[in-house]
Amino acid sequence: MLVALTVATAVAALLLAAWCGWAAWRDQPTKDWHFIGMGVVALMATAQLVVGIVQLARGERPGQDSVIFVAYLLGAFACVPVAGFMSLAERTRWGSLTVAAGGFVLAVLQVRLYDIWGA
């Protein structure tokens, strides 16, 4: 469950990064549709945080330390919303590029989460 969610979130985050990168390339700010996309990705990261905590509560343990696991879950949870708010403050292509960078960072966090859970 958690692994499937991790892979799905990583793919969604990369799609979001490509989409917002495309907007930046075309010199456009983030628009409503982008924010819906960010909402979907943020929702997946939230689901991941909940599932991760439930699995910990059930007594399942990640391969590495639980503290690191929860820290990465929280980072993944906050990543896209923070980038989204920054793009609201910067209504140019650079706001779009910031969200693209946010999606990319989230994908990297997913790879790390995969290692931390499985190692």
Partner: peptide, 20 residues
């Protein structure tokens, strides 16, 4: 403003990464 917002984002990520 402009590219600066991207710099703030990347520095923010590095702060969280390095400090935590």
């Amino acid at each position: 403003s402009g590219p600066g917002i991207l710099l703030v984002w990347l520095y923010g990520v590095m702060v969280v990464g390095a400090v935590s």
